[in-house]
Design a protein around this nucleic acid. Structure first.
Lengths: 224, 224
DNA sequence: TAATATATTTTGATTAGTCAAAAACAAATT
DNA sequence: AATTTGTTTTTGACTAATCAAAATATATTA
């Protein structure tokens, strides 16, 4: 069995690869993992030894098929647990990420299977992140963000690309949770500001950096 | 935060103290933990350093109030998780012990509190073991076993003192699960055998060692 | 192209938990 | 009282994961 540490490195590499073309640099991995550079190098060698990544000294590291499969399995556990904590135990979506971070290493496949069934084989977690299948595939539909979607058309919040509890509570307060609708009224590039109208008819203005973390899809019944 | 290892040693010490008068010997602790004697000595020193046990070289080890409180907290987590796995996720009572053994170290107090509420603040786990309260008290009613209870009087299975999946499945097959009723018909000291009648009118004969692991209480509505 | 800056890898240490085997102690037996 | 037996402690070594700081390689800039 891979240690929690190994699982965390693989998960981290998976995330980094999503936003990086080509192999992941050691410095990037180290800072994403919050460890010293030398630690990352040492661990990556171990992962390469274990046949989970491809490592080229000074050329970066990338998951190989085995490593990717394992990373996706960890991600599946993580996201199913998050949804379970919200749906079954009634925790707030802003706090489940950190809980899941621990539980994802402790839960067996048997328990996971039961949770999946109880939740009705869900496809996304409380943040709208897609849940990998048991076989290790994820499909991540391409979604626009509030920073680049059409204006003056109703959209539905589909996914939030940030797990920070503070930020998620802010979205809660603002009525910008996955599933809720909104309309982008105005984009002001100079002010770096995006103004939107929520489904509760509230007007909210956010910066581009925040808007870019809120992914949307066309609201139901609207042709885009 | 105490490591899983520390939690396991404390839990183990708690169990050992229940069946030992005076301090626990190193050899006993070592074999209960499945480690070499020297490992137990080293760990016990660490626990003493951390203010969790009282350790007298060559005189054994005992939990102090702090250590006992922590041990009971771990036990509470363990037993609530077991019940949760059975009641909410539908796992079999024979397999939840091992699952809980992992999860007990990963679950937060917040999640535990939710589970406790969802289960209706239960007082026993699926094996009939009492669940310590959040404040750290357990009350363990004195129960007779099938090896020493009255004969020819209906009793209800209250608690099973063994977590071995194989044994638990055997009990399941025999209709001797907590909550079910039985009557001891005969005890044959020479044959080391105890014969009983289950509530499904099946006749079962078990050895004394097994009978001693099955604790009972007077069946409802019967004066004992 | 030489000098400087930046990233990566090595090296030497540290901590938690473990084992095997040697040493020390205590108890029981002769 | 001396020896044997059994338990406990010590010692030396190992693994996984980490850091700090030195050494090295690669880029960038002048």
């Amino acid at each position: 069995m891979p240690s929690s540490t190994v699982e965390n490195y693989l998960k981290c590499l998976y995330h980094q690869e999503l936003t990086t073309e080509g192999p992941v640099a050691m410095g990037q991995l180290a800072s994403a993992m919050g460890v010293a550079p030398g630690t990352a190098t040492a661990m990556v060698k171990t992962l390469a030894e274990a046949g989970l990544v491809h490592y080229e000294p000074r050329g970066g590291v990338s998951l190989n098929p085995t490593g990717r499969r394992l990373a996706l399995h960890v991600l599946r556990r993580h996201r199913l647990i998050e949804l379970f904590l919200v749906q079954v135990l009634g925790l707030d979506w802003s706090e489940v990420h950190d809980e899941a971070e621990e539980l994802e290493h402790a839960i067996s496949d048997k328990v996971l299977t039961r949770m999946d069934a109880l939740l009705g084989h869900p496809s996304v977690d409380p943040h709208g992140d897609p849940i990998p299948t048991a076989r290790g595939s994820v499909h991540t539909p391409h979604l626009a963000s509030l920073a680049d979607c059409h204006t003056d058309r109703p959209v539905r919040i589909a996914r939030i690309l940030d797990q920070d509890p503070r930020f998620l509570r802010f979205l809660d307060q603002s009525g910008l949770t996955p599933g809720s609708e909104a309309v982008v009224q105005n984009r002001d590039a100079d002010a770096d500001a995006i103004t939107l109208q929520t489904s509760q008819s509230r007007q909210i203005t956010v910066g581009t950096a925040v808007a870019a973390k809120i992914l949307v899809e066309p609201a139901a019944g609207v042709e885009n």
